[in-house]
């Protein structure tokens, strides 16, 4: 679910990043109340746990494997506020150092996986646990919370993808970022998550929780019984406000006319108008130019560019070739 860069427009990323600011602020303020300031290392260690949990490959039916996100688990273990910060830090490290998820889309990834996932998961868990009570309620809460949590996060990602073609187009009406409308992105994201990833997440969450509860029940997080209403409010407000922010920062409202929605919705059914034309002409560089507004540049610019590219590629090939050769020598 890690969204890379260039799938979302920078303004979407900025809007979601801005939406995270209050979530982070509230989380840190809450944490300061819950743990003393000197207990900051706990966050780093929670983050590293969250990071490593995503490294665990989990067996899926059919012999394949997948990995859990563990957002709800972390929220149940450390509390939702610590989970929010911990997952955010883990995501930042993944984006910055491991190339998992983009730098610009960091805000969006945090919104989905560090905010929506742990908070939805945790409050559902809490809600069911407090209402049903007993061990049954606890486990029902974990299952529902983790299943719904990850699916809510996936839905947010799907919506973020799906609004891109509505909002961001070039003059020729071509999508600048993710080209798939909601009618494609939602089922594409949701079907695998509802059918597989959600179940994996739930089973894994239950299994790890059971283990920890059995071995070391004292380490579990004790949330307060009440006062969660404010958080529900925050959650609802953010979820309502974010799409507005996205729209406002996107193209103007007016452009998003009814006919456009129709167009998008009918997206899949559009006849293959463009493609045959392109195929007839073959792959022709100049023919492609107008689309990318490359025309009008002096011809030497392209020459210089390809010369530099040529030298760089030659150097790279040479170095790789030499290293393979020296490795072979080392073997003998």
């Amino acid at each position: 679910m890690h969204i890379p860069d260039n799938y979302l427009s920078p303004s979407t990323c900025a809007a979601l990043g801005a939406a995270m600011v209050p979530a982070w602020t509230v989380s840190i303020r809450k944490l300061k109340k819950e743990v003393t300031r000197a207990k900051m290392p706990l966050l780093g260690i929670g983050a590293s746990f969250s990071f490593l949990m995503m490294m665990f490959n989990i067996p899926l039916p059919g012999g394949t494997t997948g990995h859990a996100v563990g957002g709800t688990l972390l929220a149940i273990l450390l509390g939702p506020y610590a989970a929010c910060i911990s997952v955010s830090v883990a995501l930042l490290i993944q984006a910055l150092f491991f190339g998992d998820g983009g730098l610009l889309s960091f805000g969006a990834n945090c919104f989905n996986m560090a905010f929506v996932l742990p908070f939805v998961g945790y409050f559902l868990y809490k809600f069911i646990k407090d209402r049903v009570g007993g061990e049954k309620g606890e486990y029902a809460g974990i299952i529902v919370g983790s299943y719904v949590g990850i699916n809510a996060a996936a839905l947010c990602a799907a919506i973020e993808f799906g609004i891109q073609p509505l909002l961001f187009k070039n003059a020729a009406g071509q999508a600048l970022y993710c080209p798939y409308p909601l009618s494609v992105s939602v089922p594409a994201m949701m079907i695998p998550h509802l059918a597989v990833a959600g179940i994996v997440e739930a089973v894994f969450t239950v299994a790890v929780f059971t283990f920890i509860k059995k071995v070391s029940p004292g380490t579990l997080y004790e949330g307060e019984k009440q006062k969660s209403k404010a958080v529900y409010g925050l959650l609802a407000a953010l979820i309502c406000l974010t799409p507005l922010g996205l729209l406002a920062t996107g193209t103007a409202w007016g452009e998003w006319g009814a006919d456009e929605i129709q167009n998008v919705a009918a997206g899949g059914g559009k006849p293959l108008g463009f493609v045959p034309e392109g195929m007839l002409h073959g792959i022709h560089f100049e023919a492609a130019m107008p689309d990318y507004s490359i025309a009008g540049l002096p011809p030497y610019a392209a020459y210089i560019l390809s010369a530099v590219a040529g030298v760089a590629i030659l150097l790279i090939l040479f170095k790789i070739f030499r290293s393979i050769k020296s490795k072979n020598k080392g073997m003998q």
Binding site: P4, D5, N6, Y7, A172, Y177, P179
Partner: peptide, 29 residues
């Protein structure tokens, strides 16, 4: 798949952008 309903822009631009962005971060790290 989006190329089939005429997404000629993204199919060239986005992979190139992704390549550059991923390379840039990797060079840094």
């Amino acid at each position: 798949p989006s190329a089939f309903w005429g997404n000629r822009y993204g199919i060239v631009m986005i992979p190139l952008k992704v390549f550059a962005a991923v390379s840039a971060v990797n060079i840094l790290s």
